[in-house]
Design a protein around this nucleic acid. Sequence first.
DNA 1: AGGTTCATGTAACCCGTTACATGATTTC
DNA 2: GAAATCATGTAACGGGTTACATGAACCT
Lengths: 187, 187
Amino acid sequence: MKENSLLGYALLGLIHQQPRSGYDLRKIFANTPMGTFSDSPGAIYPALQRLEERGFVTSRVHASSGLRRRRLFRPTSSGKRAFRAWQTSSINSDDVIHRADELMLRFGFMDETAGAAQATRFLKALAKELAAYIPILRKFLKVQGAGMPLSGKLALESGIRGYETLLHWAKSALGIYKRSKKRGARK
Amino acid sequence: MKENSLLGYALLGLIHQQPRSGYDLRKIFANTPMGTFSDSPGAIYPALQRLEERGFVTSRVHASSGLRRRRLFRPTSSGKRAFRAWQTSSINSDDVIHRADELMLRFGFMDETAGAAQATRFLKALAKELAAYIPILRKFLKVQGAGMPLSGKLALESGIRGYETLLHWAKSALGIYKRSKKRGARK
DNA sequence: AGGTTCATGTAACCCGTTACATGATTTC
DNA sequence: GAAATCATGTAACGGGTTACATGAACCT
């Protein structure tokens, strides 16, 4: 079921936008806010090889006139299907607690590969899980806080605020999708 | 230089508070907000073995009357030194971008192992790095936003808000340390 | 007596890190 | 023609995941 690493899905999503080479992908990770992923060749080239072995991408070497040879990757239909399945799979509390990065990566490509309806579905589910989890953390802090050192309490407070911020963001993003849908319908 | 994994430091920090067994540590990761770490035995027991091999902890089996045998771990002086060195090492932009989790773990044990002065030093350095990084992200969003799909823009916005929240938190935490120091000095 | 919880371990596998290697093309 | 950049790879290593294994103590 867990067919690819997070890096693998990031690569799949990026070549979904347009065919890219390993070097293109490295540059994206090196020079954009997607830089949470490693731009090291030892991570990216093997990851692309795995994607190809699994039939999620194909590659072809382009060496057009005076340019350096570049191996361009593009997703197969099977790759597109696997990506969409990963992206639209249901969200549970474990995802929120242990895999927040993965959730945001899933959402980042949502428009291009799954559409606005899936995006709102995703945001609603995320907001629901966050609304359930935040009070649990708040209660823990209240009950256990007395016996915790100040820095420990503050670290937990920081984590909670992060989740609260994410919840606010999800709600405002939902509003944006709702308005853009209405505007689209009015046309 | 990179002597231990993040899990290793988490374990070191926890047994610094009091001697604990592998099972104690698993329970902490299973039942508290420190649950971002894996509670699987396949992660924890080998990690403890590594810490022992490297001389950062010692262990002794306790089997006192009618209780199940438990191997209790406690840090060595070398372990305490390594932990403190890790915890108080300087913060750079890379830490903020790629290792935010690690920063928060370092801070969470700060009072117990490094003191309030180090905590304020840490918070100031963190705030400085965040204040430098956030405008870079904001600018990227402004410049590149037009060519990005809505969900991509929103995902980036979410990340930025996360950093902004962290910056606000760091400033308010600094205020708390400052006030508690004053109160301490008045006595 | 049998199931559950306590408690500690091991082994295969996957994959990211780090470091090294190679050659072609552009730039000065 | 030397240096920098483009572009793609490989290999050793570390450590987390998953799954399996074992036995003691506690509960009913």
